[in-house]
């Protein structure tokens, strides 16, 4: 295994991770909700009375994050490197949307909150999507 030292950013990764942990802990402690992005968004597609506003307010904050962070700390928001073609992006979006709803969670709900709750169900889900991600990237970058 070769470590990519030029792109490896342990400190910002750790600090960013701690911020994600604080947000997840705050959401369950203040609002009584698990911070799982796919569940919060997906719940809007089968809307129930009284179960809509909290999702909208949370997602509004999430989407406004880049603009506000650029005001606070100019230059901190790096331009994303997106290699995938539009066709691959659409296929990826469909798989992520369908898969996270069938699997009841994504990197935030299972990966961060589920593992923090020490949930065996989330551990299995996290291992499954990580393994599948590793295999997919291996196939795309090294086999095709």
């Amino acid at each position: 295994m070769i470590i990519d030292w030029t792109h490896f950013t342990p400190w910002t990764a750790l600090i960013g991770g701690v911020v994600l942990g604080i947000a997840s802990a705050a959401f369950i402690l203040l609002n009584g909700r698990v911070l799982g992005i796919s569940g919060i968004l997906g719940g809007l597609l089968a809307p129930r009375r009284g179960d809509i506003n909290w999702r909208v307010f949370f997602l509004a904050g999430l989407i406004l994050a880049p603009v506000t962070l650029s005001w606070l700390i100019p230059g901190v928001v790096a331009a994303p490197r997106i290699e995938a073609s539009n066709l691959a992006i659409v296929a990826a979006g469909l798989l992520v949307g369908l898969g996270t709803r069938y699997g009841s969670g994504c990197t935030s709900g299972h990966g961060v909150c589920g593992l923090s709750r020490l949930s065996p169900r989330s551990l299995v889900a996290t291992m499954a999507f990580m393994a599948s991600g590793f295999v997919t990237v291996y196939v795309i970058r090294h086999l095709i």
Binding site: I82, A84, A88, I89, A91, A92, G93, L94, L95, V96, G97, L98, G99, T100, R101, Y102, G103, S104, C106, T107, H110, V124, A125, T126, A128, F129, M130, A131, S132, G133, F134, V135, T136, V137, I140
Partner: peptide, 12 residues
């Protein structure tokens, strides 16, 4: 579901 999600994640 999680395997499908991982495939989409790895794709983009």
């Amino acid at each position: 579901g999680s395997l499908m999600f991982g495939a989409g994640w790895g794709l983009a």
